[in-house]
Design a protein around this nucleic acid. Sequence first.
DNA 1: GTGCAAATTGACAGCGCTGTCAATTGTGTC
DNA 2: GACACAATTGACAGCGCTGTCAATTTGCAC
Lengths: 337, 337
Amino acid sequence: MRVRLEDVARRAGVSPKTVSRVLNDEANVSDATRKRVTAAMEEMAYRPLSSARSLAGNRSFLVAMLYDNNDNPASTYLAEIQDGVLEACDAHRYNMMVRPLRMRGDDFVSRLDAVISDHHPDGIVLTPPITDYAPLLKRLRERKVPFASVSPVSREDNIGVAMDEQRAARTMVDHLLSLGHRRIAHVSGIADHGASRWRLAGYREAMAAAGLAEDPALVVQGAFTFASGVTAARQLFALEPRPTAVFAANDDMASGVMWVANERGMKVPQDISVCGFDDIPLASQLWPALTTIRQPSREMGKVAALQLLEVLRGRGPGRLVEMPFSLEVRDSTAAPP
Amino acid sequence: MRVRLEDVARRAGVSPKTVSRVLNDEANVSDATRKRVTAAMEEMAYRPLSSARSLAGNRSFLVAMLYDNNDNPASTYLAEIQDGVLEACDAHRYNMMVRPLRMRGDDFVSRLDAVISDHHPDGIVLTPPITDYAPLLKRLRERKVPFASVSPVSREDNIGVAMDEQRAARTMVDHLLSLGHRRIAHVSGIADHGASRWRLAGYREAMAAAGLAEDPALVVQGAFTFASGVTAARQLFALEPRPTAVFAANDDMASGVMWVANERGMKVPQDISVCGFDDIPLASQLWPALTTIRQPSREMGKVAALQLLEVLRGRGPGRLVEMPFSLEVRDSTAAPP
DNA sequence: GTGCAAATTGACAGCGCTGTCAATTGTGTC
DNA sequence: GACACAATTGACAGCGCTGTCAATTTGCAC
């Protein structure tokens, strides 16, 4: 029925253990033997049974991607990361599973424990904002489960992928400044998320560098959602004088800002400039198309997973890879009225 | 170190096999024994090792969700379905994996074979449009892998979940008719997708019922993407007389239509009404908010998975559950100019 | 009580692979 | 050609669970 490792061994005229060595790419197999075994595997269309490999070898060939389904960013962002992680796992014949991990409440460490005990992933990919929950990272290290992070706050002791979000945010605000804006507002994200802090820091840095004193009224706290963008915009548009540009910490909030502008009959970008961050598909579908920072999410997921896999396969320590960003100037920003 | 089934057995004073029976919810265990074993499992925080269960029991506790990453609908739609499937699997302690399966080319059956041979899912959830590829369904039946479908074209021999899309489309067009529109255009989806056929059929049915002769120029083929909506709109807006309303077969294409309207300086809904289908988050973020058909995607994923799980757990044959839709009248439709 | 069927429980082998460690073969040196 | 040592290969047990089937207990009629 099913072709087993033993069958391959018989055909190649070697012991099962040798086939196992070839299968696992281990050293100490002569080239001749390796070729013979590989040929036999192909001829017989051999597919190792992962449950047997897991049981005997005490590993799962499983990578779990954890995300926060509570305070999570736009689902398109996660979907893209997932896509990249999956591609990387496929390339190395690892399985991938996605696990939501609600970060509200204080028992999320025990929920992490449950995921590990139930599924025994060989490694974990962490997505924002759970890249930064200290107790969770601590537990992961205690249990010695290797992990890689997408956009972690700390660049020390972390492997995965990062982007210089502060510089990206500064680039965006510099763009607004160069158009002539001075009264630039910022809608920030959830306060303790790295993304919020960096993007706010970039905004402040750009404003300070332009010699503009900080006006606290111009910075409004959002929550990365469309609805929070709407609320923030209502607040900002009530200011006197009104800001001439709004930099939202992500595209969903920017779309909320544009919504309110439309509601008030304000023309974007003639009456007010709006820009976002992430470049999710929505950004190009809005009218006018949203000026934003392009973040290569799919690629970032892939790179983070590859770093993890390097560790899992004993190929090296893995590192934190820096990804480039780009400013996508579209139609939602222009000179102030 | 790790608590094994044997340890639980010793503690409960029964044989390992009996603990196994309790674990698998099998019949023929006395209540007293069952209680004792359950208690022991809890006290020891026993977690069965799924690789051992899979190996010995010849099943994987794995549900694979297949999607077409080539002609797939909006990723938000899939993300929602995935979420629902995951919830259902979690509830029954099944694992879930997502697998893209490119449907271009003619070797997709062998790629399906590879997925089955590599991962041995106990069952499969099919998402549109791969719910309808006959050779693939045939192979699944040959290999006796149970599957459930989300929105399959054929209601015979299928379990999973469906929605009366034709009636939904008709409801949408009836809405436009009731506003006074007569020259109503339709942007259809990829021709052989069930979703396209139903939505087109609903459009035709409504038009015919209103006594309007079919004008072939009013039906333009799209591909479910934003870009195809843009192309279709350019074509439709060149007609003389111009249609007063456009019903796009999904929200992404509707947003493309609105984009072109904006580009031409046409006001939605004053100059032209636009509506879509699916109610993805984008629909409420557009200005004006898009009138559309709400499809409970997350719930549909969950229901389809539950039907599959019923089969996998030997609880019954599963059935095709009908889900309700609703017409979401928002701000993109109004009386014709 | 006895006898019999049904319900409950257990003994044991084995799922397909890998870890451990021992056996064998090859290589280089003198 | 003999020796030491490294490289290669294999024998065997066992990972933690479940399927099979036999043993035991229980319930019930008489």
